[in-house]
Amino acid sequence: MTLRIVVVGAGYSGLAAAKLAAKWTDARVTLVNESGRFVERVRLHQLAAGQPLRDLPLADLLDGTGVELVVDRATEIDVVVRIVHTRDARALPYDLLIYALGSRADLDSVPGVAEHAHTVATLDQAARLRDRLAPGQTVAVVGGGLTGVEAAAELAETRPELKVRLVTRGVLGAGLSPRGRRYLRRAFDRLGVEVREDARVAKVRADGAVLAGGEHINADTVVWTAGFEVPGLARAAGFAVDDRGRMVVDRTLRSVSHPEVYGVGDAAAVHRADGQELRMACATGLPVAQQAVRGIADRLAGREPRPLRFRYVNQCISLGRRDGLVQFVRSDDSPRSAVLTGRPAALYKEAIVRSTILLERHPTLPSGI
């Protein structure tokens, strides 16, 4: 009987994993995803600012691969009989499962976020934010991570009629080198982005954000980028998960509780040999997907899979379309002193983002492992 592999989720990790599984094994591969289109999540801040994005139908990206696409939402995984159930009452049996559901904005950690804030975590959410913005508005971007920094810069550059504020509970560019932090500060000054540091948001209201000390940050629109969570499907299925609900996998990306299941992307807690957990990022998702499917192919061929080897190289930050910051890092993601800035950094970042689509079209190309 032909081996059946079901891949749940068609983000950066899931799409690559499905195509690689079809290429590197003799299995029948089914990819289930709620949308029929691939979303360039790393560009959603551009969409929110009013820039058009490419339309990338999954059917086109899968053409000629033999992967069966099911456009539906996975709602339950029955690990006893090994079936993925969907919203439209489909039952997808599997022998091996690749779990790649990704992450979503955490809207429940602070009161008022779900009711009053906007995000750039999905295509629909970014489009709603775009449609919400109007000339003269004040926009407060909450969260000083890479998503918040890129969103604030993109909005300020593309929509100069807006007043943009960034609210962060730490220091702007906390993970960057001193040179990187100085450049980021200058870029925000040039763009007119007002920065509020060491500010913890305790509540979001229709008229802005309220800090832990009671101070009100006025805003017509609040953009929430301060944290991500994963879907609860893995926990509900009974897979071993960490305290954030991420599937716990070994260094070949196989579930530690269910050996017929592999976890890739944001929804899996993946660790380096030194124990460091990989951060949620496209840059980690693609090579991890390659490694997982290599492991599957090796085991099917009777070979022992190699454990994951991963090292960080840089963090690429867009500061609008004409400026950028590339922070070069050590293998453990800690910053080096070296940075690339300005137009060259913007071009570097754009090349990286474009290369992800090249990798999705041709996932056997090297991607960092």
Rank of each mutant, 00 (worst) to 15 (best):
residue 171 V to K: 14
residue 104 R to D: 05
residue 201 V to C: 14
residue 293 V to D: 00
residue 9 G to F: 09
residue 328 F to M: 08
residue 7 V to W: 01
residue 255 S to P: 02
residue 327 Q to K: 12
residue 197 E to N: 08
residue 317 I to C: 06
residue 1 M to F: 07
residue 36 G to Y: 06
residue 343 R to P: 03
residue 277 E to R: 15
residue 112 G to V: 07
residue 77 I to S: 00
residue 131 D to N: 13
residue 341 T to R: 15
residue 278 L to Y: 08
residue 222 V to I: 09
residue 246 R to K: 09
residue 119 T to W: 06
residue 351 A to W: 05
residue 7 V to M: 04
residue 9 G to W: 10
residue 346 A to P: 10
residue 286 L to R: 02
residue 297 A to C: 10
residue 230 V to S: 10
residue 234 A to D: 04
residue 362 H to A: 12
residue 86 T to Q: 06
residue 322 R to W: 04
residue 189 D to L: 10
residue 152 A to E: 02
residue 289 A to Y: 00
residue 277 E to I: 13
residue 298 D to T: 09
residue 260 E to S: 08
residue 50 G to T: 12
residue 87 R to M: 13
residue 30 T to M: 08
residue 266 D to F: 08
residue 11 G to Q: 12
residue 225 T to R: 10
residue 251 R to Q: 13
residue 352 I to D: 09
residue 215 E to C: 03
residue 340 L to M: 15
residue 45 H to R: 14
residue 361 R to K: 15
residue 234 A to F: 03
residue 62 L to I: 11
residue 261 V to M: 09
residue 58 L to G: 00
residue 350 E to T: 15
residue 317 I to F: 08
residue 345 A to G: 13
residue 172 L to D: 10
residue 58 L to K: 00
residue 229 E to L: 03
residue 367 S to T: 11
residue 192 G to I: 10
residue 111 P to L: 14
residue 256 V to I: 14
residue 135 P to W: 06
residue 270 V to N: 03
residue 110 V to D: 06
residue 240 A to Y: 03
residue 252 T to R: 14
residue 132 R to H: 12
residue 122 T to I: 07
residue 235 R to Y: 01
residue 122 T to H: 06
residue 308 L to F: 01
residue 9 G to V: 08
residue 296 I to R: 06
residue 31 L to M: 03
residue 187 A to K: 08
residue 133 L to I: 07
residue 369 I to Y: 00
residue 8 V to C: 05
residue 175 G to C: 12
residue 152 A to D: 02
residue 145 G to I: 10
residue 278 L to I: 11
residue 222 V to T: 15
residue 110 V to C: 07
residue 296 I to C: 05
residue 105 A to M: 05
